[in-house]
Simulated scan of single mutants.
Amino acid sequence: MKKIINDPKRVVDESVAGFGLAHADIVRVEMDPIYVVRVDAPVSGKVGIVSGGGSGHEPLHAGYVGFGMLDAAVPGAVFTSPTPDPILAATKAVDGGAGVLHIVKNYTGDVLNFETAADLASAEDITVRAVVINDDVAVKDSLYTAGRRGVGGTVLVEKLAGAAAQRGDSLDDVAEIAERVNANVRSMGLALTPCIVPHAGEPSFTLAEDEIEIGIGIHGEPGRERIKLAPADDLVDRLIDPVLDDLPFAGGERVLLFVNGMGGTPLIELYLAYRRAAEVLQGRNVTISRSLVGNYITSLEMQGMSITVLRLDDEMIELWDAPVQTAALRWGR
């Protein structure tokens, strides 16, 4: 194992500290308990938005803290949910009097710990709503979930809900936007290689040199099938066809197409995949109105990709285009 680390037990703390130093104009970092929060939080009269989960998926979630997106993010250990205490501390830190929305990926530990934190916040008279993201069409249940996993769609929910909160929407309205996005977004991914969790020191699963896992989870959970290496266009088809069939599409819709790298995939390959995904959408009479390509929700150094399609309406397009200033997404300011 080769990694640029010191003590494996200190990886998250040292990385988050470095993140805070690098982006001190956008965020501040609290270490005990650990969370990342907007530098101007709490914003009076604004709905606060908190997300979080296991580390190792950077830039998710801390990279999306800032104007127009998240108010706070709570990092757990690598691939491990944060506990209720830092989630509660982050919730209190962003409470500007208009309530707080928790955006939670559908993993059992995340769901339970965010629920516990919400109950504790309620006892302190903070109104909390939660939206659980479950956009992965690959499998119904996995090692970490009951029901579908939350994956690439999380980034899009955080952006659009964050924009709604930034413009002054109520907690109910922000939650409705988040639910609407979740209902209209689907994702599926694949892996060419496993990743190595620092404290484990060995690959999270094994793949032969000529094998690919279709439908992999962001923690290395098994997918739908294991196949031999195939041309890129064939791989894209294996991902995007189930995504489009699951929504489903009648033709004439507008979408946001998001091709995401899993951490170890170069952009040249992601854009190659985007080209094929765009061809498939065009063949189904679906218009790509917005796009996103890059490593935005990763699995450490895993080589692979995911494809996410969000069916858009006018309000979603307006919210996507709204100004945002975070470490990982920024435009319009």
Results as ranks from 00 to 15, higher is better:
Ile4Gly: 03
Asn6Lys: 09
Val11Glu: 03
Val12Met: 04
Asp13Thr: 13
Glu14Ile: 05
Glu14Thr: 12
Ala17Lys: 15
Gly20Tyr: 00
Leu21Thr: 06
Asp25Gln: 14
Glu30Gly: 01
Met31Phe: 11
Met31Trp: 03
Pro33His: 14
Tyr35Ala: 00
Arg38Ile: 02
Ser44Arg: 12
Val47Met: 05
Gly48Phe: 04
Ile49Gln: 05
Ile49Trp: 01
Ser51Gly: 12
Gly52Thr: 00
Gly54Ser: 12
Ser55Tyr: 07
Gly56Met: 07
His57Gln: 11
Leu60Ile: 09
Gly66Pro: 01
Gly68Ile: 04
Leu70Lys: 12
Leu70Glu: 06
Asp71Pro: 06
Val74His: 06
Pro75Asp: 05
Gly76Arg: 00
Thr80Val: 15
Ile87Glu: 01
Ile87Met: 08
Leu88Asn: 07
Ala90Ser: 06
Val100Met: 09
Val100Asp: 02
Val104Pro: 00
Val104Tyr: 03
Val104Gly: 01
Thr108Ser: 15
Gly109Ile: 05
Gly109Glu: 03
Glu115Met: 03
Asp119Ile: 10
Leu120Lys: 11
Asp125Met: 08
Val128Glu: 00
Val132Trp: 02
Asp136Tyr: 12
Val139Phe: 00
Lys140Trp: 07
Ser142Arg: 08
Ser142Glu: 04
Gly147Asn: 07
Gly150Asp: 05
Gly152Lys: 02
Gly153Phe: 02
Thr154Cys: 11
Glu158Gln: 15
Lys159Met: 04
Ala161Ile: 09
Ile177Gln: 04
Ile177Gly: 01
Ala178Trp: 01
Glu179Thr: 08
Val181Ser: 07
Ala183Gln: 12
Ser187Met: 10
Thr193Met: 12
Thr193Leu: 05
Pro194Ala: 15
Cys195Met: 13
Pro198Leu: 08
Pro198His: 08
His199Ile: 13
Ala200Thr: 12
Glu202Asn: 11
Glu202Cys: 04
Glu202Thr: 11
Glu209Gly: 07
Asp210Lys: 10
Ile212Arg: 02
Glu213Pro: 00
Gly215Trp: 07
Ile216Met: 10
Glu221Met: 10
Pro222Ala: 10
Ile227Glu: 03
Pro231Ile: 12
Asp233Gln: 10
Val236Arg: 00
Val236His: 00
Arg238Gln: 15
Leu239Gln: 02
Ile240Phe: 05
Asp241Ser: 11
Pro242Val: 15
Pro248Gly: 13
Gly252Met: 08
Glu253Met: 15
Glu253Gly: 09
Val255Met: 14
Val255Ser: 09
Val259Glu: 03
Asn260Phe: 03
Gly261Ser: 10
Gly263Gln: 07
Gly263Asp: 06
Leu267Gln: 10
Glu269Gln: 07
Ala273Gly: 13
Ala277Tyr: 03
Ala277Lys: 04
Val280Asp: 05
Val286Asp: 00
Thr287Asp: 15
Ile288Tyr: 05
Ser291Asn: 11
Val293Asn: 05
Gly294Arg: 09
Asn295Arg: 06
Glu301Gly: 07
Gln303Leu: 01
Met305Asp: 02
Thr308Lys: 07
Val309Pro: 01
Leu312Ser: 09
Asp314Lys: 14
Asp314Thr: 15
Ile317Ser: 10
Glu318Gly: 08
Val324Met: 06
Ala328Leu: 08
Gly332Thr: 08
